[in-house]
Design a protein around this nucleic acid. Structure first.
Lengths: 210, 210
DNA sequence: TAGATTGTTAATCGATTAACAATC
DNA sequence: TAGATTGTTAATCGATTAACAATC
């Protein structure tokens, strides 16, 4: 019953990609099944947590057997939208934009890169990862016409906010934002802010405390 | 008393860079002081959490006044090692390596980029962000001789583990790892694994659930 | 059937929030 | 002094872990 389903906590959601990675590896190794205990040892978490996490989605295992690797992997893919083939565009064709465009991980996870935009006249027309860089002024229309799902924002801080505003009602569903700003979720657009240096600074903190 | 000091929880440590970002912004805006309540509204957290977090480090405020922005910022910088001027090298001069080398955020946070290494003969000798790319075979010695603190690993998955092994006892203190592997903390080397697509997948999950 | 291992409830632990005395 | 706001204790909430009945 939907009405009784508990909302999946954010902490659990953030663990799902990690499960996906491990299950994907097990599958590539040809493993057919795995128990929560075996997986817990591999991942360095408790078996209890694994079972609890999966049970937010109804549970993917079988008593006495464990989890079928292929089945669990398929279910994780479904949950994470990997099977949806979400369309993405990159806004900002700098080094980071290039790195993401050329990164095979996007394709592997079902994302379809279908456009790259920049405002630099020098860059427009050049090709990155087989895709021609277009003028950013056409981004809004492109997204609307092609039903693009996610915009990857790899722009300088000062350009990001106005670009986000421009794209807000284009039909875009999510921003994956790499700039030094925290975009707020605008209406119906989910925002995932990535602050790369935050992670470097936690590392630095730990080194510094020692 | 050291003996009574509670270990700072990981969740608190991971919030520190965010405090740093907000305080840095307040300082740049010329704000002299801020109360936990005002900051809590800006950041979208509770004032209680802010005060609790800072009190793991003894508290940086003054009753009846709030927090002096410059003082709090200075303390955060000290905690995060920004004042230490940690030396970093980049191992892997692909797009991501380039992006990080050219990113001003490292310098801003006091990190000193002092070397870039790659195994590709074509790349060796080229300059990135004013630094010449060196042969990766010399990385270990360079780190040991120059007391490099952190190695940023932007290599393909298959090369990362053996490079990490090679550098393990060079005196390096931390790995900031971007490859599709989870490096385990080796002895005295802290590891911060960055899985960029994990964050994209949580975004994708949310879009998918809607 | 016996053994294994999940799904799920209950217990514990830790993190967040609330409250207020201390104090600037 | 009165007002403001922290530092800190206590209460609450939520997440993790433990335990075990269900069941393959």
């Amino acid at each position: 019953m939907d009405i009784n389903e508990k909302k999946v906590p954010e902490v659990v959601v953030r663990r799902l990609p990690r499960y996906y990675r491990y299950l994907d590896e097990l599958d590539r190794e040809g493993k057919m099944r795995i128990s929560s205990t075996a997986l817990s040892k591999k991942m360095g978490v408790t078996a209890s947590q694994i079972r609890q996490d999966f049970n937010y989605f109804g549970g993917f295992g079988q008593q006495g057997y464990g989890y079928n690797v292929k089945h669990l992997l398929t279910e994780l893919k479904k949950l994470l939208g990997i099977t949806k083939g979400y369309k993405v565009v990159i806004i900002g064709a700098g080094n980071l934009g290039h790195a993401i465009a050329n990164y095979g991980g996007l394709k592997k996870r079902g994302f379809k890169l279908c456009g790259i935009f920049d405002s630099d006249k020098e860059k427009i027309g050049q090709k990155v990862g087989g895709i021609e860089i277009s003028d950013i002024s056409g981004a809004r229309e492109f997204i609307a016409e092609n039903n693009v799902d996610i915009a990857i924002l790899t722009l300088p801080k000062n350009e990001t906010e106005k670009v986000a505003e421009m794209l807000a009602d284009s039909g875009i569903k999510g921003f994956w934002n790499f700039s030094y700003t925290e975009l707020k979720s605008i209406d119906s657009v989910f925002v995932e802010n990535v602050h790369l240096t935050d992670s470097l600074m936690t590392l630095s903190f730990k080194i510094n405390q020692r």
